[in-house]
Amino acid sequence: MNPNIIIADDHPLVLKGLKDFLIEKNYNVLASAKNGKEALTLIKAHKPDIAILDIKMPFLDGLQIAEKCKAANINTKIVLITFEKDEKTYNEARALDVYGYVLKEFALDEIENCISSVINNKPYFSPELISYIKINQGPIKLKTLTEAEIKILKLVGDNKTASEIAKKLFISSRTVEKHKSHIRKKLALDSKSTSLYLFAKENSEYL
């Protein structure tokens, strides 16, 4: 199934190029916008599967749109396209659950891979960007955890059982398991009982 897509960029040539490319590849482009305000209005009206947004636009930038969609529980998956090779912007995008981050100079090469990854619920980030800012995935993902979740992850890394953690933190074992499930989700780990332990061990210096 081809996803419904909305695109937004304040550079007319980039917008036209991207739109023509996606239509040529048989993607269902519902509408396009020249600024952030238009883009948000279109997202609210159409609730597309994917919104491909320039990060820097008049009125609202791509990150602000992602923030507003998250606050309004709109399930549209946000993909940002940008020239910015910048760790701070990348961190903000991850914190807002942005699904894709594609560098403009590679946009036409990467956008298809990005879309197919995103429709399968897998975030896509430009390999160029990842290697450029040489990010350590552990600490970046850890920023999405709450203080309580960090405490629990640290104790998991210390090989504590759910009941030991519950006792130590004065909460129920059920609450511990709930937290562990949220942590797995945020860190995109599988449900194996060892996955949390291994992550905690590998990133113990950041906990």
Results as ranks from 00 to 15, higher is better:
residue 180 K to M: 09
residue 59 F to E: 14
residue 116 S to G: 05
residue 116 S to Y: 10
residue 184 R to T: 11
residue 93 A to C: 07
residue 133 I to W: 06
residue 128 E to N: 15
residue 104 K to G: 07
residue 190 D to H: 07
residue 183 I to Y: 02
residue 101 Y to R: 08
residue 178 K to D: 07
residue 153 L to E: 05
residue 61 D to K: 01
residue 152 I to W: 02
residue 133 I to H: 04
residue 90 Y to S: 00
residue 191 S to D: 13
residue 113 N to V: 11
residue 130 I to Y: 07
residue 84 E to Y: 04
residue 73 N to K: 08
residue 108 L to I: 05
residue 62 G to S: 09
residue 85 K to F: 07
residue 152 I to Q: 01
residue 80 L to T: 02
residue 156 V to F: 01
residue 145 L to N: 02
residue 151 K to V: 08
residue 74 I to A: 11
residue 132 Y to T: 12
residue 170 F to D: 05
residue 70 K to P: 08
residue 173 S to Y: 01
residue 91 N to W: 13
residue 131 S to R: 15
residue 67 E to Y: 08
residue 141 K to Q: 12
residue 145 L to A: 05
residue 130 I to K: 14
residue 129 L to S: 08
residue 67 E to G: 05
residue 72 A to D: 15
residue 148 A to H: 01
residue 154 K to Y: 08
residue 73 N to F: 03
residue 122 K to M: 09
residue 154 K to Q: 10
residue 74 I to F: 08
residue 156 V to N: 02
residue 120 N to F: 01
residue 119 I to C: 10
residue 176 V to E: 02
residue 180 K to C: 04
residue 142 L to P: 02
residue 95 A to Y: 12
residue 158 D to E: 15
residue 172 S to H: 05
residue 77 K to P: 03
residue 103 L to W: 04
residue 111 I to E: 06
residue 150 I to V: 14
residue 189 L to V: 11
residue 137 Q to N: 10
residue 175 T to R: 02
residue 155 L to P: 00
residue 179 H to R: 01
residue 110 E to N: 09
residue 79 V to P: 00
residue 77 K to H: 08
residue 109 D to P: 00
residue 94 R to C: 06
residue 162 A to G: 08
residue 165 I to V: 09
residue 117 S to V: 03
residue 135 I to L: 15
residue 168 K to C: 09
residue 70 K to F: 15
residue 139 P to R: 12
residue 108 L to D: 03
residue 169 L to Q: 12
residue 83 F to N: 07
residue 160 K to A: 12
